[in-house]
Nucleic acid binder design. Structure first.
Lengths: 247, 247
DNA sequence: GAGAATATAATGTCTGCACATAATAGCCCT
DNA sequence: AGGGCTATTATGTGCAGACATTATATTCTC
């Protein structure tokens, strides 16, 4: 989201309404109100940049900035030559901030604890192989627990391709969380993320301190860095977890 | 996300590497590679725009565009006068596209069917009152089922504040889905969204055709339009559902 | 030395202009 | 008609210069 700190917070007590400078945020707000009011109806073509610039009394670049922002937000669809169209079914985009578990827990005012459960080399199961795009060669398999105030909150199961993150193989995972290491050392990665609900498997339930079969929130993530697969993780949250965001 | 269609797809077969125009994407790529390589280390201050413009041989505005984009993506933190700093713990931002169920189902190549289960006026439970910020006055309560190829996929429970969306009260919900109506008539809304896992309640399980207590994915959403609460919805997805996104 | 006033440096944004790019619309030719 | 070339048009982006906005740094005052 672009910063939008409402550029003008009223000037003095003398000056009437103040001429109000024309920033791109102004234009965006005016455009958005036309969208909300229906003046620019769904599917319709809106006036071109030059026309709007004239109408609003600003440079075309300013209109461009505003409309580009609305397009990024999913309200408008822009195509060269074809013009700018109001999107019919605005696909709402929710932005989830995937924080580091430790930060998330500490931000909630709890003490954080990390506990390594297991660590071994093994060929990953088929599903993980597919996700990582690797062969059947052995990978590092590690399980761990994240606790808040001593209470288990998240179970982490991870497969690491040794080729993708060489340094990680030497790290003492008992003290440094794999996630923390990766964030520090293999930054700026890409990947995919999937959220789902599942019945807790017995051994995970045992670690999380809930009944086997309990409904648990599961986050699976594949991390890559420029084509190279690095790691596959499955985070299983203890029952009651909610992931929240503004929309 | 800004569009980034790799502006230049090689010119001819004769011209060597082609001078390669300096676009803001170029600058962004070069900056990002410095981030990845560690040349610009976490927490560090990077050179200012003017310096980079000189170095890259472009206008300051171009550098600005590139750095602004990286800041939006969460890699950099920029403050006037203070300069531009590399973010220490880049909080990954996953963008979920919340599509309309119908679109989602039809996009998957399935036939879509909507079935209204119930509709009545009643005072909402306390939790919903809080979420909507309304009083105890009666609201519309509607339950419905979304089916793909005749198989139940999502159960929808909804509370609508009559004050927030007057027109909706008159709509024949049996034929028009509440969601569809809202998208068509009350666009450009805001709200909050929360994702969780839950054990399917008996009556919902019955509708979804799964065992009571099955782990189901639940999406709750409160929709507002400029302070006015409009609706609270809980979507319960049939077991097996996954919400996926690139990161 | 503490606090307030002031200078300064970095980013934010506007303007006006130019050209690049992409896609539609129209034309021409067969 | 049909197919392909060309003209046109709306958006995308670059540049240089200017001013606005905001913190930080510095200096001044008591």
């Amino acid at each position: 989201m672009p910063s939008d700190p409402s550029p003008r917070i009223a000037a003095g007590h003398e000056t009437p309404p103040a001429p109000e400078a024309i920033t791109w945020q102004t234009i965006r707000a005016r455009a958005l109100s036309r969208l909300r009011s229906g003046a620019w109806a769904p599917g319709e073509l809106i006036p071109n940049e030059a026309a709007l610039a004239t109408e609003f009394g600003c440079a075309r670049a300013t209109v461009n900035r505003a409309l580009r922002d609305l397009a990024e937000a999913g309200y408008l669809e822009r195509r060269r030559k074809a013009g700018t169209r109001v999107v019919r079914n605005p696909v709402r985009k929710a932005t989830l901030s995937i924080a580091i578990i430790r930060d998330e827990i500490e931000a909630g005012g709890h003490s954080y604890e990390y506990r390594l459960l297991s660590r071994r080399m093994a060929p990953p199961p088929r599903a993980v192989q597919d996700a990582l795009g690797t062969n059947t060669h052995p990978c590092l398999h590690a399980c761990a627990l994240h606790l808040a105030d001593g209470i288990p909150r998240v179970h982490e199961e991870r497969w690491v391709d040794p080729g993708g993150a060489p340094g990680l193989m030497e790290v003492d995972l008992a003290t440094t969380g794999a996630n923390a290491w990766l964030v520090e050392n293999v930054r700026y990665t890409e990947g995919t993320l999937s959220l789902s609900a599942a019945a807790a498997e017995a051994h995970i339930a045992a670690h999380l301190g809930c009944a086997p079969g309990s409904a648990v929130f599961v986050l699976e993530r594949v991390t890559r860095m420029r084509e190279t697969a690095i790691t596959w993780v499955r985070m299983t949250y203890a029952p009651g977890y909610r992931m929240t965001t503004a929309i």
